[in-house]
Computed example of a mutant assay.
Amino acid sequence: MYLPDFKLERKLAVITGGTKGIGKAITLAFAESGADVIVIARNLKDLEQTKKEVEKLGKQASIICKDINDYKEIVQEVERVREGRDLDIWVNNAGMNIRSEAEKVTEEEWDQIISTNMRSAFFLSQYAGQVMKSSKKGKIINISSVGGHTALRTGVVYAMTKSALIQMTKNLALEWGKYNINVNAIGPWYFPTSLTERLLQDESYVQEILERTPLNRIGKLEELSGAAVFLASDAGNYMTGQTLFVDGGMTIYGF
């Protein structure tokens, strides 16, 4: 058999920040591939809408309305909702950015970005790893950024956290490989999301983006969710500790 299995039938996947942009695209792609999902986000209305869309695809959706920084409460809710089922896939997608020049970053901004993007991802991964260790299998996917690999013009603290996620991915993959747990990351460039909406309305900024992108266009969300399905499925079983840059070739340049 030369075609690997990209299906996620009978799998249970948790997606943080799973109601908008990249997170929602991954949530719906997982459901379309056969997985039941637990979606974590702050906005109840968005959660309920996402739940309806998943159920239209014929899969079960549970929702947890929590801020990602309340990770101890999130763990308790996931334990309640999964009802003893194996935790097959965990996606650390929730994140934020405050675009500031380095000399203008405040301590409050620093703490907020570090906690949201890095601290929560680590401790939720810790929980997911503990559960997956008991079942001797699992996939953890961290949503990083090209900013974790290549210098960006602003957003130094954001870039630091995304770089940390890449290194965390490598270390967890090394530590948990013996338990058949795969840990990988995805590094997106520009996609249409709530975080990029304002920037993508600036024609001069978009032109600058395109000049740094060999494929000369903004990415489509389904082009990113396909990478997530690959890493979550049996097709990605021999991938671990890696970061897939879904970036139209942007990181080729190395600047």
Rank of each mutant, 00 (worst) to 15 (best):
S204N: 13
I209E: 01
I209L: 02
S145C: 06
K66I: 10
T154R: 07
Q242M: 07
L152S: 15
G18S: 08
T213F: 00
K45G: 12
V131G: 09
Y205L: 15
M132Y: 00
A25W: 09
Y190L: 13
G17D: 01
I98K: 15
R10S: 14
E32P: 10
G147C: 03
L200W: 06
C65L: 06
D67N: 15
V157Q: 07
G84D: 04
D247Q: 05
D70H: 13
G187Y: 02
N216Q: 14
L172T: 07
F245I: 03
R82Y: 06
V78M: 05
D247Y: 05
L210H: 03
E109K: 12
L231P: 09
S204T: 15
R10P: 06
V183D: 02
R42A: 09
S145P: 04
I141Q: 04
L195C: 07
G95T: 01
G249H: 02
S163P: 07
A232G: 03
A235P: 00
S115E: 12
L57H: 08
V183F: 00
W189G: 04
F6V: 13
V183H: 01
Q76G: 14
A94V: 08
V91T: 13
M96C: 11
E175Q: 11
E9I: 13
E108F: 13
F30Q: 04
A35L: 09
Q201F: 03
I89V: 08
L221K: 07
A151C: 12
K72G: 11
A29W: 01
L124C: 07
G34M: 00
K59F: 06
R10V: 12
L221W: 05
E73L: 07
M118H: 13
L174A: 14
